[in-house]
Design a protein around this nucleic acid. Structure first.
Lengths: 204, 204
DNA sequence: AAACAAGACTGGTCTGACCACCTAATGTTT
DNA sequence: AAACATTAGGTGGTCAGACCAGTCTTGTTT
């Protein structure tokens, strides 16, 4: 045979999922049942399922079964990230890309921030529970682009594990809060440049 | 046990790849050797390798061995496409993020394009061998941010496997070429908005 | 009715056995 | 010596069966 069993099994499982109209949360047949129905070894079924699991399409729960998963928490980005960012020379790229993505998210958030989302931010500022980490989390969420949010989160994870945490005065957040309220994009970007980008470019 | 063997095995394999400094084209230890070294069953090794294979990080050749693979195209795209991109929100996020990243790359390329790199572009335009795919490849390269280039490439692979190729008149590239020569960033972004962003926002 | 216990699932893992395939060493012929 | 054919060992691909470790169902006991 030219084709590999676990590849065909993967396609068959996909077919079953489609024909049965399975959606997130639904249970898919057990490994042993799939093995029988598709007339392949259980190990081949498992190898196919493993691919689907790491792609974030299914979720396996020991003792319970295998379930369809909501698109979102796929480790795709994480895994790719760990493999891509292993090169040392990528660090300057990392910092630059992170900043660029943050500027992107700032613009999206400025445009799309809802009133309730804005209140969240103002509350964090008022109670002084805000820090740079939380602020950026809010920004990426308010941008309402989940994919971009995920990509940023990976970069941020690598950043925080290689650099010191960024600490900014409360006035920075207060000014940001005001700028988001009035949706003043240039004020937002200016604040960001002054307090985040410029200090970074001085560091090693 | 809390963690699953094939997950830990995956991390161990990653560690080996890093410590041995393996790059694209290099051979990684055989399944049986990994099984011995890591003291896990061969089936667990295979399940871990399967994940890496579908992520396009390795390539298995029957009878030869398993090799590191150049990051890029693979079935990952088709798989995720058929399984995931059915959800509308994910699609809009994908398109939006791709466009945003491209605008980022355009700005970087405008600033950093070297003379030799510029000549490459002009040559492609003169010989009319240019198309949108090649143009964007040039842009991301000229931006000289390898990380950003790779992230974009992933999104672009998703995109091209789910949407029709973008076809633009030669005048677009000629104008772009001129704008890059004079490093006129606003002209570049205007061209991009008019020919790429606007048509996309009209599509479903 | 509530609490408990046994059994029947399910996924997780390992082992050992083949098969198909490739490569390189070996031997044979020219 | 060079070209060819053969062979042996290594590699991924696949299967079957066994056992473990959790979860859920069911039926009995209290």
């Amino acid at each position: 045979m030219t084709s590999k069993v676990y590849v065909e099994t993967l396609q068959q499982i996909h077919r079953i999922i489609q024909e049965d109209g399975l959606v997130a949360g639904d249970k898919i047949p057990s490994e042993r049942e799939l093995s029988e129905r598709l007339k392949v070894g259980r190990s081949s079924v498992r190898e196919a399922l493993r691919a689907l699991e790491f792609l974030g399409i299914i979720e396996t729960r020991r003792g319970e079964g295998t379930y369809m998963k909501e698109f979102g928490e796929h480790q795709l980005i994480d895994l790719l990230g760990t493999f891509i960012l292993q090169e040392e020379k990528a660090k300057t790229d990392l910092v630059e890309t992170k900043v660029l993505l943050e500027q992107l998210c700032l613009q999206l958030a400025c445009k799309r921030r809802s009133q309730t989302k804005l209140d969240e931010l103002k509350k964090m500022i008022r109670q002084k529970t805000i820090n740079y980490e939380r602020f950026l989390k809010w920004v990426t969420e308010a941008g309402e682009n989940y994919l971009l949010e995920r990509i940023w989160r990976v970069l941020n994870d690598f950043f925080t594990s290689n650099y010191d945490a960024i600490s900014l005065p409360i006035t920075f957040y207060e000014n940001m809060g005001h700028a988001f309220e009035t949706q003043d994009i240039s004020a937002i970007l200016d604040l960001f440049t002054e307090h985040v980008v410029m200090p970074l470019s001085k560091q090693p």
